[in-house]
Nucleic acid binder design. Structure first.
Length: 151
DNA sequence: GCCAACGTTGGC
DNA sequence: GCCAACGTTGGC
């Protein structure tokens, strides 16, 4: 499957992703996003890396899933900002995947630009803006990959 | 910094 | 199980 994963660049940017051989996608505390990571993301799946809360916001690169859903340990640690007392080792509430850097776009594919492409009008990104991990259809993936911003 | 959209919590 | 209050996301 194909995906879109959001990150605020002032917290974790595509350049941070590029720096590490492995990035645990921790801290997601939304059930729908959790379910995608726990149940549906598979090794080798590709995801658009989206910069949110940026100016401008948009797709900036591609990441690859290299480990499938496993418990997000940051939920167990009271010192961690993502701590959640509802989650523990015996019955973890939150899950994450590991991803790695694949590529960065030559220039940002802005949200404004995506909105102008009629074939993308049903993209979850444009309909349910707040979901931080979301599926992308094959058709949407291909349309976006053909944009000149990648070269 | 504002605020609309939307997810979560908790009283009843 | 409803729904008001509240919190968060994220574009602008």
């Amino acid at each position: 499957m194909y995906w879109l994963m959001k990150s605020e660049p002032n917290v974790f940017s595509i350049e941070d992703l590029r720096k590490y051989t492995l990035t645990p996608w921790d801290g997601v505390r939304n059930y729908q996003a959790r379910n995608y990571m726990r149940d549906q993301m598979k090794i080798g799946d590709l995801a658009f890396f989206y910069h949110s809360n940026a100016n401008p916001s948009g797709i900036t690169g591609i990441a690859k899933v290299i480990r499938e859903g496993y418990p997000d340990h940051t939920a167990f640690d009271p010192e961690n900002v993502h701590y959640d007392p509802k989650s523990d080792l015996k019955k973890p509430a939150w899950f994450m995947v590991d991803v790695e850097f694949v590529k960065v776009a030559r220039s940002l594919i802005t949200l404004e630009r995506l909105k102008k492409i009629p074939e993308l009008k049903d993209m979850l990104l444009l309909r349910h803006g707040r979901l931080s991990v979301q599926p992308v259809t094959l058709q949407q993936w291909q349309i976006i990959l053909k944009l000149p911003e990648w070269e």
